[in-house]
């Protein structure tokens, strides 16, 4: 490429030279550039795939993660017991969490200042605490501190999951209630409804539609958090997926159970996230005539 001569009037000679000798690349249109960029990305992908295929130790990988006999040996317990327990723990925790969350959300919106403060403290406390710590305190801390604290395992798991999820759900419910236009309450009050009746018959049903998608997400998170129940070291028939998987990994000295329980979690969470998207389409954007 010829270098433009440093003339006094660079504007005239400068731009003229590159246009004359421009390479095809420099003249590519935006669409061509995008095409090239896509091509490069595919090429990188293919190279990585080939490298993995060549250098991965397939027999060893299959032996560690994909032993069909070990996977088959986990059935039917992995479904009839572990998957069932995970679902039961999640459901119980969610139900308790939802009830607590509704109370906390209503307290958060109360006209009484003390209720508002208490609700805020509760939310900040349990939202900031790792779920693992809650399990440790309920499962080991309190029984040590108070001799009479002797709850069934199932109840401890339910309370722990309920506490962990309630703080998040309280904030979601509060936001949902506040998203219902104020005019709805005014209309209800002008028809002679008390403020609590307006809340329960007019505001909450509409808030629930708004918060169904985020609550479904919370259910997914809770399904995963239920795995923490394994640290409580439950009895054999109280094992959920994580506990069973851990036990099987120790028993078989193989990682195949890991894959099996991972798939089981996906059996729970993928339909839920699909449900969440469906609900979002149905209620999320539609304001159903509310102004």
């Amino acid at each position: 490429m010829s270098v433009p001569t440093a003339s006094e009037d660079g504007r005239q000679t400068g731009p003229a030279v590159p246009t004359a000798t421009a390479t095809p690349k420099a003249r590519m249109s935006k669409r061509q550039k995008a095409k090239l960029s896509r091509g490069i990305q595919y090429a990188i992908l293919i190279v990585i795939a080939i490298l993995i295929a060549i250098f991965a130790d397939w027999p060893k990988l299959i032996d560690s993660f994909g032993r069909v006999d070990i996977a088959a040996g986990m059935f039917p317990d992995v479904i009839t017991m572990a998957l069932k327990n995970t679902v039961v723990y999640t459901f119980l925790g969610f139900a308790l969490g939802l009830v607590i969350a509704l109370f906390v959300a209503l307290m958060r919106l109360s006209s009484v200042g003390v209720y508002r403060w208490l609700a805020t403290i509760y939310i900040e406390f349990f939202r900031g605490l790792p779920a693992l710590v809650v399990f440790l305190v309920l499962g080991f801390g309190l029984p040590v501190a108070f001799e009479n604290f002797n709850l069934p395992q199932l109840v401890i798991i339910m309370i722990a999951l309920g506490l962990v999820s309630s703080a998040y759900m309280a904030e979601t419910i509060r936001a949902g209630i506040q998203a219902v236009p104020k005019g709805q309450i005014e209309a209800a009050r002008s028809l002679g409804m008390s403020s609590s009746r307006a809340m329960f018959t007019i505001v909450l049903p509409q808030a629930m539609r708004i918060i169904l998608p985020p609550l479904t997400n919370e259910l997914i998170l809770l399904a995963k958090d239920s795995s923490l129940a394994y640290i409580l070291g439950s009895s054999v028939d109280g094992r959920e997926l994580a506990a069973l998987g851990r036990a099987e990994i120790v028993n078989t000295a193989n990682l195949t159970p890991f894959i099996v329980i991972a798939l089981c979690y996906l059996i729970i969470t993928i339909p839920l996230s699909y449900l969440s998207r469906v609900l979002e389409r149905k209620y999320g954007s539609a304001d159903s005539g509310v102004k």
Binding site: Q184, A187, P205, Q206, R209, D287, S288, G289, K291
Partner: peptide, 10 residues
């Protein structure tokens, strides 16, 4: 009767 109707949307 309100400017923005305020019918119960649900």
């Amino acid at each position: 009767v309100f400017q923005s109707f305020n019918l119960f949307g649900h």
